[in-house]
Design a protein around this nucleic acid. Structure first.
Length: 137
DNA sequence: GCCAACGTTGGC
DNA sequence: GCCAACGTTGGC
């Protein structure tokens, strides 16, 4: 079981969209590093769902429901998508400021490479963020 | 709205 | 193959 974090602009495709659709296709990724991470995702992996730009917080956990396949938004076989479904909404969103303030997770990839949209999260980091959200998974 | 970080593009 | 210019992302 691996853990991940995906970033999304809530205006474009936020947590609420995912909940409404029940299952969302994570397409349009055009970054090699992010693509490699998508390919490494396994069904059942848990994914922190981060809202960028407006609220800047992790709002919940999604689950990988389908492993990578050809990105439907392009014919270029270089790009892939996965499918995600909502797993659990956080009781309290975990803000970027709170993450930055927590020394236990200062190695989080997001803090080092702010522009990556799909990134791995270690198990301790995942657990710590869930703990900060006061959510029981 | 500004700026930093990073990826991509194109000239050489 | 290097590097400057440019575009995009995302935090502030």
């Amino acid at each position: 079981m691996n853990y991940w974090l995906v970033k999304s602009e809530p205006d474009v495709y936020g947590w609420d969209h995912l909940v409404k659709e029940k299952e969302g296709t994570w397409d349009g990724v055009r970054n090699h590093q992010a693509r490699n991470n998508l390919k490494a995702m396994k069904k059942g992996d848990l994914v922190l769902f981060y809202h960028s730009q407006s609220t800047k917080d992790v709002v919940g956990v999604a689950e990988v429901s389908k492993e990578f396949f050809q990105d439907p938004t392009t014919d270029d076989p270089a790009w892939v998508s996965v499918k995600l479904k909502p797993y659990k909404k956080f009781t309290e969103p975990v803000t970027l400021a709170a993450i930055k303030a927590n020394v236990k997770i200062k190695e989080l990839v997001m803090l080092r490479n702010g522009r990556l949209s799909v990134m791995p999260v270690s198990k301790p980091e995942f657990n710590e963020i869930v703990k900060m959200s006061k959510t029981k998974l």
